[in-house]
Simulated scan of single mutants.
Amino acid sequence: MTAAQIRWAEGAFSTTVGRETTARRRPREGSREAPVRIDDTEGLLSGKALNYAVRGPA
């Protein structure tokens, strides 16, 4: 389940980047959409997915 959620989030991000690229928007404009997509997606993931492979303090 965790892997599926992580893959779904990565797919949503990749779709956003691909859509902006094929729309021929300037990179600066398109790159502003990506963090918004990540924030939107984060709220849909389970706690287990969000805490997967978290590193401790360096």
Score class of each variant (00 low, 15 high):
Met1Ser: 10
Met1His: 07
Thr2Ala: 08
Thr2His: 03
Ala3Asn: 05
Ala4Lys: 08
Ala4Thr: 05
Ala4Val: 02
Ala4His: 03
Gln5Leu: 01
Gln5Ala: 06
Ile6Asn: 07
Ile6Arg: 10
Ile6Gln: 06
Arg7Asp: 14
Arg7Phe: 08
Trp8Tyr: 05
Trp8Gln: 14
Trp8Leu: 10
Trp8Thr: 08
Ala9Asn: 03
Ala9Val: 01
Ala9Gly: 06
Glu10Asn: 13
Glu10His: 12
Glu10Phe: 11
Gly11Arg: 06
Phe13Pro: 02
Phe13His: 07
Ser14Trp: 09
Ser14Ala: 15
Thr15Glu: 14
Thr15Val: 08
Thr16Tyr: 03
Thr16Pro: 08
Thr16Glu: 13
Thr16Val: 14
Val17Met: 04
Val17Cys: 04
Val17Thr: 04
Gly18Leu: 13
Gly18Tyr: 11
Gly18Asn: 15
Gly18Ser: 15
Arg19Glu: 09
Arg19Asn: 10
Arg19Ala: 09
Arg19Lys: 13
Arg19Cys: 03
Glu20Lys: 12
Glu20Phe: 06
Thr21Arg: 14
Thr22Arg: 15
Thr22Ile: 10
Ala23Ser: 04
Ala23Gln: 07
Arg24Pro: 02
Arg25Tyr: 05
Arg25Lys: 11
Arg26Ser: 11
Arg26Trp: 09
Arg26Ala: 11
Arg26Cys: 06
Pro27Cys: 04
Pro27His: 05
Arg28Asp: 10
Arg28Lys: 12
Arg28Glu: 12
Glu29Val: 11
Gly30Phe: 06
Gly30Leu: 02
Gly30Tyr: 02
Ser31Thr: 13
Ser31Ile: 13
Ser31Phe: 14
Ser31Asp: 13
Arg32Gly: 08
Arg32Gln: 04
Glu33Cys: 09
Ala34Val: 15
Ala34Gln: 04
Ala34Ser: 07
Ala34Glu: 01
Pro35His: 01
Pro35Gly: 00
Pro35Lys: 02
Val36Ala: 10
Arg37Ala: 01
Arg37Glu: 00
Arg37Met: 02
Arg37Lys: 07
Ile38Thr: 05
Asp39Val: 07
Asp39Cys: 12
Asp39Trp: 11
Asp40Pro: 08
Thr41Asp: 07
Thr41Phe: 05
Glu42Ala: 14
Leu44Glu: 10
Leu44Lys: 15
Leu44Ser: 12
Leu44Asp: 11
Leu45Ser: 02
Ser46Ala: 00
Ser46Asn: 00
Ser46Tyr: 00
Gly47Ala: 10
Gly47Val: 05
Gly47Leu: 12
Gly47Cys: 02
Lys48Gln: 09
Lys48Trp: 01
Ala49Thr: 03
Ala49Gly: 04
Ala49Cys: 04
Ala49Gln: 02
Leu50Ile: 00
Leu50Cys: 03
Leu50Tyr: 00
Leu50Asp: 01
Leu50Gln: 03
Asn51Gln: 11
Tyr52Phe: 09
Ala53Tyr: 12
Ala53Thr: 10
Ala53Ser: 12
Val54Ser: 09
Val54Leu: 15
Val54Trp: 06
Arg55Asp: 12
Arg55Gly: 11
Arg55Ser: 14
Arg55Leu: 15
Gly56Tyr: 07
Gly56Ala: 14
Gly56Cys: 05
Pro57Ser: 15
Pro57Leu: 15
Pro57Met: 14
Ala58His: 10
Ala58Phe: 08
